[in-house]
């Protein structure tokens, strides 16, 4: 075998290894989803969705958990959406090139890399204790809002950056002020991108357990929360709690709850992908 033959052989071998690597992650994903489906799908019924948690696995449900998750989603959106967009607009349209903007930029990049459990410690001291919110939905939502804020800001900036300069010029030339230009032109034109980012950030928040455990969200909450000041649990914490128990029936519960959590996550991601696609098609500069 000549040297060139050997090289060609190695080249082919790597190609197969590449295909193997590309698919191994997906294969694991598939095995995993199938395993969960087999374990959990039979457990999902109306009662499972509507029952309160219980000591006995077969009577336990995820009612409090998914209500808690929806509350957290809602409150986090209300808090993180305006803050994140406001910060993104400021950095992209107002504070450009100022010293402050450079500091903010580095700071936001750093925040994005802070482990989520550290946000839990922040929430524990500031929201739970200092602001005396206790282990309430509001404390949880505030904590998660800070956690996803960097993502919302970064995607907002990306979306705003994609709006061409000429649109701003056109608006300014008609006597529009800076804010009018932002409000009437820049934000509507970048809204699809911003929304995509916000939803992706929310799908991240939906799956978070660690920071909420730290602020004291409880696995066992006897009633579904009815106001932002109520104690709560969320699906990931409920799942964690069930996984931690030795009995097989609770593992089945965990698998069933995971299916529900994954459905919520995939729906959110699906909406984000759809929006991105639709927006890209609609606006061609």
């Amino acid at each position: 075998m000549t040297n060139a033959d050997r090289n060609r052989l190695k080249d082919k071998a790597f190609q197969f290894f590449g295909i193997f690597c590309t698919f191994i992650g997906l294969a694991v994903l598939a095995v995993f989803l199938i395993d969960i489906l087999i374990d959990g799908i039979g457990r999902i019924d109306w009662e499972f969705l509507n029952n309160l948690p219980s000591r006995r696995a077969h009577r336990s449900g995820i009612y409090t958990a998914w209500i808690g998750t929806l509350w957290i989603l809602l409150l986090t959106t209300i808090i993180a959406f305006p803050l994140g967009i406001g910060a993104g607009v400021y950095l992209e349209e107002y504070g450009k090139k100022s010293r402050m903007a450079t500091i903010l930029e580095i700071n936001i990049a750093n925040l994005a890399g802070v482990p989520s459990i550290i946000y839990g410690l922040l929430g524990l001291e500031i929201f739970v204790r200092l602001m005396a919110l206790g282990g309430s939905l509001l404390a949880g939502a505030l904590t998660l809002s800070l956690l996803i804020l960097p993502i919302v800001i970064v995607t907002t900036r990306e979306a705003i950056k994609a709006v061409p300069r000429s649109i701003r010029d056109g608006s300014f030339a008609l006597g529009a002020s800076k804010w009018q230009t932002v409000w009437y032109q820049v934000l509507p034109a970048s809204f699809g991108g911003i929304l995509t980012g916000v939803i992706l950030a929310l799908s991240r928040a939906v799956g978070e357990a660690a920071p909420l455990i730290v602020i004291g969200a409880l696995a066992y909450v006897p009633f579904a929360p009815a106001s932002p000041m109520d104690e709560f649990t969320v699906l990931p914490i409920q799942i964690f709690n069930w996984i931690s128990r030795p009995q097989a029936a609770f593992t089945t519960n965990a698998a069933a709850a995971i299916i529900v959590l994954l459905v919520i996550t995939f729906i959110l991601n699906g909406i984000a992908v759809y929006l991105r696609h639709k927006w890209q098609k609609r606006i061609k500069w």
């Binding site: 305006p82 803050l83 994140g84 967009i85 406001g86 910060a87 607009v89 400021y90 950095l91 107002y94 504070g95 500091i103 903010l104 700071n107 936001i108 750093n110 925040l111 802070v114 550290i118 946000y119 410690l121 922040l122 001291e125 500031i126 800070l146 804020l149 960097p150 800001i153 800076k178 804010w179």
Partner: peptide, 23 residues
């Protein structure tokens, strides 16, 4: 409005300061 936007950006600094202070 510019002040409010600035404020929402400045909150990120507060978050960092908060994390470091708490820890």
């Amino acid at each position: 409005i510019e002040g409010l936007l600035w404020l929402s950006a400045a909150i990120t600094i507060l978050v960092t300061v908060g994390i470091i202070w708490v820890l």
